[in-house]
């Protein structure tokens, strides 16, 4: 299997803004001169279900999807989704997880329990950065900017330069929310666990 690409998986719950996050990431890697493929899921799964986006970049990218055991980074917008995505993480890979809990329907109906201690369990197997991205987004001016906070944290873990990220945020988000999003990106980028 060709190992030329960097593989990033963005996971979350439909409606959390994962699509915008993948757009910023995709545009940033183009600006940095890479080939890239971004694979999204639209339609029914967006209605509060698990959503997965694959972003792969490098010299030449063929498959738009990431296989199990092949993600360099998993960027998770929610705890349980990070846990679910674990099999896709490369051995020794990194998980960045927003420490938010959103109950799925089987938990709401009482058919199953939301697993306890997910962050601790993940930390035994992977390099985990867990953060309260909602609070940082609130600090930036809107809890809706949580996706950009998380992109900021992830950006720090790539070899793409800071100014390229800023340029991308500027060109991707609506001008009306630019200030909030720049603040959100910086709060994420400068986040120290």
């Amino acid at each position: 299997m060709s190992k030329t690409s960097t593989n990033i998986m963005i996971v979350g719950v439909g409606g959390q803004g994962t699509l915008l996050a993948s757009r910023i990431l995709g545009n940033a890697v183009i600006l940095a001169g890479h080939d890239v493929k971004v694979s999204e899921v639209h339609g029914m799964s967006q209605r509060g279900g698990s959503v997965v986006t694959y972003v792969k970049y490098g010299e030449a990218v063929h498959s738009p999807i990431i296989d199990k055991g092949e993600a360099d980074i998993i960027l998770a917008f929610e705890r349980l989704e990070a846990y679910r995505a674990l099999p896709w993480l490369k051995k020794g890979g990194k998980i960045i997880v927003n420490d938010q809990k959103i109950n799925p329907m089987p938990v709401i109906t009482g058919a199953m329990e939301y697993p306890e201690g997910i962050i601790e369990k993940l930390s035994e197997k992977a390099d985990v950065t867990a953060l309260d991205a909602l609070s940082l987004a609130e600090k930036a001016g809107s809890i809706k900017a949580v996706n950009v906070v998380l992109i900021g944290v992830m950006a720090k873990n790539t070899d793409i330069e800071h100014d390229k990220w800023i340029e991308t945020v500027k060109s991707t988000v609506p001008p009306k929310f630019l200030d909030i999003n720049i603040k959100a990106f910086e709060l994420g980028y400068n986040y120290n666990p």
Partner: peptide, 22 residues
């Protein structure tokens, strides 16, 4: 005949998150 990459699994069954009415 190439073996797939190795990976870790969660220690328990992870509750599914099916789509729901908003």
């Amino acid at each position: 005949g190439k073996a797939p990459a190795e990976f870790d699994k969660p220690d328990e069954i992870v509750p599914a998150r099916p789509p729901v009415l908003c």
